[in-house]
């Protein structure tokens, strides 16, 4: 059975890779299987994780037992989960003609909660910690930095400053302000270049993984 599974996986892997040549029936078949099976897979995962794992087990918790399986106490139900379940059911209101507008309530709830909950987190991680990390003594602690470290420190502070100037929207990028913004976008682009190379290398490991599967698990050429 495992042997058959490896052959099917190899067939579908080659089908997806065949897209590099051009769109073809083999790719279409692999794509349809991939999309269909993954959609079904995620439906099952989300059902067991959320509807059963969180809601059902939360509202109707099993009894607490000790290691020997003896009854210890009844589980404590979390009725707050019913609020979430009701909001989830309201989402289905859009299937009923005339009351579809009700499905906007849970959406508004989700978007509003997301904004509120993440406000503090984003502010602390994207602003506070970034600013704290950027404010550094240019010549090192006790003026003990080497020339390379000083250059590095100047690039960090100057690059962040110029990059931030680029993201000013309410002021025209002209004169000294515009020149600083231009330095900022250059810093950003150089960073992107370095990031591009780094990420391409990490993606190579994904390719190597598939090649390893084809030549190892499937063809047995790699031991």
């Amino acid at each position: 059975m495992e042997h058959v599974a490896v052959w099917i996986a190899a067939f579908l892997t080659l089908g997806i890779i065949s897209f590099l040549y051009k769109d073809n029936p083999w790719y279409k078949l692999s794509e349809a299987i991939f999309v269909g099976i993954s959609a079904g897979y995620w439906f099952v995962v989300l059902f067991w994780d959320n509807i059963y794992g969180k809601f059902w087990v939360g509202v109707f918790p099993p009894d607490v037992v000790d290691e020997a399986g003896n009854f210890v106490s009844h589980g404590v139900p979390d009725y707050a989960l019913i609020v979430g379940a009701v909001l989830g059911v309201l989402m289905l209101a859009r299937l009923l003609p005339g009351v579809g507008w009700i499905s906007r309530w849970p959406l508004a709830f989700i978007v509003g909660c997301t904004s509120g909950l993440y406000l503090m987190n984003y502010f602390s991680s994207n602003i506070m910690r970034q600013v704290q990390g950027t404010i550094i003594p240019l010549f090192g602690i006790g003026y003990g930095a080497s020339v390379y470290e000083i250059i590095g420190n100047i690039v960090i502070v100057g690059g962040t400053f110029a990059g931030l100037v680029y993201f000013f929207f309410s002021k025209e990028h002209r004169g000294a302000f515009g020149a600083t913004a231009k330095v900022g976008i250059w810093v950003i682009m150089i960073t992107f270049g370095a990031s591009f190379g780094y990420t391409v290398m990490s993606r190579m490991s994904l390719l190597i993984g598939r090649i390893d599967f084809l030549f190892g698990d499937w063809l047995g050429l790699i031991k």
């Binding site: 991680s125 506070m128 600013v131 704290q132 404010i135 550094i136 003594p137 006790g142 502070v157 100037v165």
Partner: peptide
């Protein structure tokens, strides 16, 4: 931006650890 400028000057010349204001 102002914080970056002021903080870097203060920390470079060891006047005050300005970055501690942003410590989370």
């Amino acid at each position: 931006l102002i914080s970056l400028l002021v903080g870097t000057i203060l920390e470079t010349f060891h006047i005050w650890q300005f970055s501690s204001l942003f410590k989370v």
